[in-house]
Every structure is written in structure tokens, then in C-alpha cells.
Simulated scan of single mutants.
Amino acid sequence: MNKELTAVSLFTGAGGMDVGFERAGIKVVFANELMKEAAQTYNANHPTGVMVNDDIYNQLESIGQYAGADLVFGGPPCQGFSVAGKMNPDDERSKLIFTFLDVVEKVKPRAFVMENVKALGKLEKWEPVRKKYMDIAAKLGYFCVPFVLNATEYNVSQKRERVFFIGIKGNDDPFFETTIANLLEEQKHNAPTIRELLGSLGKAGSESNPNTCTAKITFATHPIMRKSPYAGMYFNGQGRPINVDEYANTLPASMGGNKTPFVDEEYLYGEAGEDWVVAYHQGLMDGSITPEFEEAPSRLRRLTINEAARIQTFPDDYVFCGTKGHIYTQIGNAVPCNMAEAVAKAIVKYLNEHS
């Protein structure tokens, strides 16, 4: 019988990563989050009292009391590295990936997992940052490899690509990278389409699926066209239409207003034979429609909180605290639970087989 593994959770947010790691049999002994509402959400779902709502810098002195925990995991804020952000290496938030390693140095876990945007794992621009990160990890005695994963391959109905820096104490296993890659491969599970995922929630405005985003959907006067009806920008705001027969694009932390993605409700529930957006796009392309409408038809509507949470694979009974805006932010910021679970299971299997 393998003993229960323990972990320190950093930049915890609403706890999406924790849900996944807990499902893999890991017990979180300390969690830290700066945003008050996210910490409240965590406590509402994890009444064990391990959450410390504070700036991580204030916790660095005392965190050594958790030395000997098996894992340190978390997703430091990524705006400094994000293609969607300003990509500024001097952004204070960009330094938090190194603060993560400060905690690793004090806790000395057997392994660590740090999640971040794909750009940090792939872009040439960030090669010096990646190298610095791996060099520090190596100095601390960890062999570290970045793995870029796509959430859709891990039972998440969302085209969300993220990098997971996985570090293991000591580097006497020459096959570490290959072994972890194979273990991650074992965890792959195709995600349902958005229609399959959301169908059972009930329509927006029903008891099980309250309508939580009232931002109007209006037409762009000067639409930017793309081949796909789901890729152009022909509605105002950054909230794009979702193809319910496929997967959602990455849900942003800026949801709640007109940056919230939207669906065709009638098409989602099979009451219409075609997505309204497809016909509108076709009309714009062939010139039979000119963009002069003020507001889109009511069958187009924004994702609800419950739908966004389900797309991020939170349990349906997960309790979120704060205003609607805060809740959308917590959901968008989260690491999808199913994706985290897959990574955690791969790590647990590795640690159990190489203890």
C-alpha cells in the first residue's frame, strides 16, 4: 500500500488544480492565495482550514514548517508571459515563477509541478527565462522538464494549451522525461463536445443554470472576417461565438461582461438545425447581409457561470464566492480540474514506482 502523498499548493486560486491533485490521492497540507474571494471559494469547498489568504512573500519565512511534503504545485500568475497580455518580463507577476522555486527550496519536496501559459514553455522570447528557471531548479537539486499539454486531450472541452514544468528531486533517472511523457499519454481521454457537456445542465435561466451574464451581444460595424465563422471578429467585445459541435476556446479570466464567450441557445438544444452565427457569417462573406443590425437575436447568449465552471471541469456542486465578476475571473484563472488530475496521476505513479 502506497502512503498518502502530501502537497503544498501555491497561487491556489479557487482550487481547480487542488481538486485534480486531491482526486489523484494527494492531501494538501497548505494552500496560499492572495485574492480574498478566491480564498473564500477554496475554504467553502475545502473546510480543512489549510488556506492562508495572504501575499506569498509574507509566508516565505514560515513555510519551512511544511518541509518534507511530497509535492509543491501551483500556477503563478502568467500575465507577464501571456500572448494575450503585454508579455513584459519585468512585470512583477513574471517574477512569481521564481518565488515558486523559493518555496521549493524551503519545502524540499520529492517533486514539483508549476503550470503556466504555453508561451513560457515554447516561445523563443522566453528561452532565457526558461533556462534561468531550469538552472535554479538544477541548483536546488531538481531535474526539471517543461511539458506543453492540450486540455482537450485530457477530458476538458476547451482548446487550452498550458505548460507544466515538472521537477523531480535528484536526476539519476536518465529516462525521466520519456517516462513522464508515457505516463501522461496513459492519462489521455478525449473530451465531450460542448453540446454533449452542457446539454444536461438545462437552459440558461433555469434553476440548475441561472443566467448570470447580461452583457448584450451587438454587431461590429466593421467586422474582421476569417474563413471560419468562429474565428473572425464580427461582434463587439472580445467574447467570441463557441462552436458547440467542437470545443470552446480558452475561457479568459476577463469573462463576466462582453468578453464572455457565447452560444446559440436554440442550436445548442437542438431546436435549430444550424448555428445562427454560421448563416450570418455566410451572409457577410457573400455580401447578402450588411452589418447594420444593432443587437444580435436573443437566441445568442453568453455563457453562464455554471457552464463556464463545467467547461473548466469543476464539480457541479462546487461553491463559488464573491460577485459574478469575481466568480467568472476565478473560473477563467483556474487550471482545469481534469487536466490537473491527469498530471497529478502521472506524477503519483512515477513517485510510487521510483521511490
Rank of each mutant, 00 (worst) to 15 (best):
C78G: 08
Q79A: 04
Q79C: 03
Q79H: 12
G80F: 00
G80E: 00
G80A: 00
G80M: 00
G80Y: 00
G80K: 00
G80V: 00
F81L: 05
F81T: 12
F81M: 03
S82P: 08
V83R: 13
A84E: 07
A84M: 13
G85K: 09
G85W: 03
G85E: 10
K86C: 04
K86R: 14
M87A: 04
M87T: 01
M87V: 00
N88L: 09
N88G: 03
N88D: 15
N88Q: 14
P89C: 08
P89R: 14
P89H: 08
D90S: 14
D90R: 14
E92F: 09
E92N: 09
S94T: 06
S94M: 05
S94E: 11
S94H: 05
S94N: 07
K95L: 13
K95C: 06
L96S: 02
L96G: 01
L96N: 01
L96I: 09
I97F: 02
I97L: 06
F98I: 09
T99W: 02
T99Q: 03
F100I: 13
F100D: 08
F100C: 04
L101A: 11
L101D: 09
L101W: 09
D102Q: 13
V103W: 04
V103A: 01
V103D: 02
V103S: 02
V104N: 08
V104Q: 08
V104D: 10
E105P: 06
E105G: 08
E105I: 04
K106P: 07
K106W: 08
K106H: 10
K106T: 07
V107M: 11
V107C: 10
V107Y: 10
V107Q: 11
K108R: 15
P109L: 02
P109T: 10
R110V: 01
R110T: 06
R110F: 07
R110N: 14
R110H: 14
A111L: 12
A111K: 11
A111H: 10
F112D: 09
F112N: 03
V113T: 11
V113F: 12
V113L: 15
V113P: 02
V113S: 03
M114P: 02
M114G: 01
M114L: 15
M114W: 02
M114A: 07
E115C: 01
N116C: 03
